[in-house]
């Protein structure tokens, strides 16, 4: 008879959990997006770093075998991403395109040298590494000169450091906000049950026993919130990947998967810890103190 009324009442109550779930979901979603930003900031900076070219100029006297061998050994080295042999004719061709005029017309001959362009892996684009690599190449007697833009490398490394510092700082602040926000929603939910908690203590239940169902309930809410956040992240990732194909957002599925796992884990851990402390707070109060 009254069951439809009761259902209605229950539905109203469920909506109060809804706000907890929603705040958890939104906060974790934001955190996840930030995580994706960090993951891809690395990729973008790597992308730029790998544009740095070390050019090894070869003496005209260098034999083809020697050149080939050097190129091959460079290509095998762990710090090299790719190598490219540029003959003096190709170099002249490139220069012609860049300058818009054929300098050979007034110089009368091709002053350029054969060279090997080396692109390094992002991790190795530091001044120290570049120095080492160039010194190694200069050891070979058929190598004339090794050039690279040291100032550019320094500038890039400095900027990457600066940017990653700020990104980390912002994510730290976001994590703090996440924890505080989830914590306060949970505290309110537990606060509304403070008299129930007291009654449970009055009948001889231990603190642990009382805490357990509260924590379990919050973890369930945390899981739902985290799942919502993950769905949101997946949708954003899908569309970003479609729009910016060149960023290769999904090129490292393990890392993306790890991010999802971390967000999910955060949903559980944050709700767990804050419920623990919220219930503990009321468990430690005397009955009279509940009314303040």
């Amino acid at each position: 008879m009254s069951s439809s009324f009761e259902k209605h009442q229950k539905r109203k109550l469920i909506s109060s959990y809804f706000s907890v779930v929603l705040s958890i979901a939104l906060v974790l979603f934001l955190l996840g997006l930030l995580g994706m930003l960090i993951l891809n900031a690395q990729k973008v900076s790597d992308h730029f770093k790998e544009q740095v070219v070390v050019t090894i100029y070869l003496k005209d006297s260098a034999k083809e075998v020697e050149t080939k061998q050097l190129e091959k050994s460079l290509a095998m080295a762990e710090y090299v991403k790719s190598t490219e042999y540029v003959s003096r004719e190709q170099a002249a061709e490139i220069m012609k395109v860049e300058n818009g005029e054929d300098f050979m017309d007034f110089v009368g001959y091709n002053p350029l040298q054969n060279s090997i362009d080396v692109h390094l892996k992002a991790n190795f684009v530091t001044s120290e590494h570049l120095e080492k690599i160039s010194a190694e190449a200069l050891n070979k007697d058929f190598v004339e000169e090794v050039t690279y833009d040291n100032d550019l490398v320094k500038l890039m490394n400095d900027n990457v450091k600066k940017i990653s510092f700020w990104v980390l700082l912002v994510s730290g602040i976001f994590t703090l906000i996440a924890v505080l926000l989830i914590n306060s929603s949970i505290r309110l939910a537990v606060y509304s049950k403070r008299f129930t908690i007291k009654t449970m203590q009055m009948v001889g239940a231990t603190k642990r026993f009382i805490r357990r169902p509260f924590i379990w309930k919050s973890i369930k809410l945390g899981i739902i919130g985290a799942l919502l956040a993950l769905i949101g992240m997946a949708i954003v990732l899908y569309y970003l990947n479609k729009t910016f194909v060149e960023l290769e957002l999904l090129s490292n599925p393990i890392l993306v998967g790890l991010l999802f796992v971390v967000v999910f884990g955060l949903g559980i851990i944050i709700t767990w810890i804050s419920t623990h402390f919220a219930t503990q707070r009321f468990l430690n109060l005397k009955t009279d103190e509940l009314y303040y």
Partner: peptide
């Protein structure tokens, strides 16, 4: 503090306002 639950198990407490779990 940690013995209080065990004390209360040996007592039965009845309150003026009943204090049943309303949920």
């Amino acid at each position: 503090e940690k013995d209080i639950p065990y004390l209360r198990r040996k007592l039965g407490v009845v309150f003026q306002d009943f204090k049943l779990l309303i949920d």
